[in-house]
């Protein structure tokens, strides 16, 4: 293990680190928006859209990101749709993450006790008011732990971007290993890189789960 090798590699890892963060952020944001829209389609049982969303969720959840990426990056140009690796990565992450986020939101909405909905109706709230004042605030709070777990999951999935040669963290490490063979050093930096992003998130997640379980709307 050589400290010097590690130091020399740091600027490159830094680039990969930033790219991982950047793509994660974009992908997660997109996934949350897509997921929320999907879960709303399901919650309000919008005809046709509800079925489409259901099919999308099953397709996305039951296939690996790697093959989704291959299909988008290598397969789609065959039918005339050519996208950059970067765009494919983001699209892939949104396609995968959207379904996980949708299920996270739906879990939250379903977790609201029926008595809450009934009490809302009993004091004369309209469907819109019920959604605005009862379903949304409670549903979001309940879905937060699932969303946080999904965020961690999606950040880890960005490591798969290496297969379409996006120079994020994992790809940087593999490239460096291929060039200089300092396996131990580069793998160490790689693990530390992910740990820096994921350990704080995982601690926040544990804290959130406890808070949601024992507080927030406890009576």
């Amino acid at each position: 293990m050589s400290w010097q090798i590690i130091q020399q590699s740091l600027p490159m890892f830094q680039k990969g680190f930033i790219l991982t963060l950047q793509m994660s952020a974009l992908g997660i944001l997109g996934a949350i928006i897509l997921g929320l829209m999907c879960s709303l389609c399901q919650y309000f049982k919008i005809p046709v859209l509800k079925q489409i969303v259901g099919a999308y969720i099953e397709l996305s959840r039951n296939t690996p990101l790697l093959i989704q990426l291959f299909f988008i990056y290598y397969g789609l140009p065959g039918i005339g749709l050519k996208l950059s690796a970067y765009t494919c990565g983001i699209i892939g992450l949104i396609f995968l993450g959207g379904s996980y986020m949708a299920e996270g939101f739906s879990g939250g909405f379903d977790g609201i006790p029926n008595s809450q909905i009934e009490s809302g109706k009993a004091i004369g709230l309209s469907q819109g008011q019920l959604t605005r004042y009862v379903v949304f605030p409670q549903g979001f709070a309940l879905s937060i732990p699932a969303l946080a777990a999904n965020i961690i999951f999606l950040i880890k999935e960005t490591s798969i971007f290496t297969v379409i040669a996006i120079p994020e963290l994992t790809n940087t490490a593999l490239d460096l290993i291929g060039l200089y063979y300092h396996t131990n050093e580069y793998l160490l930096v790689l693990v530390v890189g992910y740990a820096i992003i994921l350990i704080p998130l995982s601690i926040i997640l544990t804290w959130l789960e406890r808070r949601i379980r024992y507080g927030t709307f406890g009576d």
Binding site: E58, L59, N62, P77
Partner: peptide, 22 residues
């Protein structure tokens, strides 16, 4: 356009295996 079909088929294969579990 081989990639489209081969990866498409693999995509479907994974789906067929995983869907029953979900």
């Amino acid at each position: 356009q081989g990639a489209f079909w081969v990866y498409g088929v693999i995509f479907v294969l994974y789906f067929l295996i995983c869907y029953p579990f979900s």
